[in-house]
Design a protein around this nucleic acid. Structure first.
Lengths: 102, 102
DNA sequence: AAATTATATGAATATTTGTTCATATATCAA
DNA sequence: TTGATATATGAACAAATATTCATATAATTT
């Protein structure tokens, strides 16, 4: 079902939307989030997949956590991350879709 | 229909997805794009709605045009902009939706 | 307890980028 | 043609930010 959306929104709302998309506006973070589309993964595994240092991954995950895009689960000394909800994966899928086909 | 997406993509693909979302990662550009959700509008009207200078609007529109997010139509000395396709409005709607409800 | 492993954090740096200002181009009016 | 209007563009500056490096914390192993 497609909701109707006013063609004028508050600057505050616009700013929050921008903030959300901004979290998706970095190559490394896209690699991280795509890696989380199906399974949860720990930081080390994510670092490998995005080919950046674990420190860099940790910084990214912190931002993603603050925006509620990912959730953390600690198990022993590892921390497993997963996408916070289905809406996030839909957004990522839409972006991928737009780039690959449409 | 939900497509299955591999949980590992090339860095090139990730970079293009990031570039797409990056275009949506600025408050002014969100205000501009939301203003275009229903009607096409000229630059002056867009500047009013986003409350930034026409020059700033023009710079933003240039980037959005290069990424094929908006299309321009010249009529007399005015230039009317509209969203390039439905996929774009879906993305914006999803972002708004995520911020306002979900 | 000491050493090792996994992750987090703060500071510093380099790069990117949004806006402004000045100026350019194009179209219309007088 | 001259002047006014609408939009575009380039340079410059300030602000935001991704990564690295060094260090900290927490959990496990020896």
């Amino acid at each position: 079902m497609k909701l109707k959306i006013k063609d004028e929104i508050s600057e505050g709302t616009a700013s929050r939307v921008a903030e959300l998309f901004n979290a998706l506006s970095d190559t490394s973070r896209i690699l991280l989030l795509v890696a989380l589309l199906h399974h949860e993964r720990n930081v080390g595994s994510l670092a490998e997949m995005a080919r950046i240092s674990e420190s860099a991954v940790s910084h990214h995950l912190r931002n993603l956590r603050l925006l509620h895009l990912v959730r953390a689960r600690k198990q022993g000394r590892q921390v497993f991350y997963r996408l916070d909800d289905d809406h996030i994966s839909d957004l990522i899928r839409s972006g991928l879709d737009h780039v690959q086909h449409g």
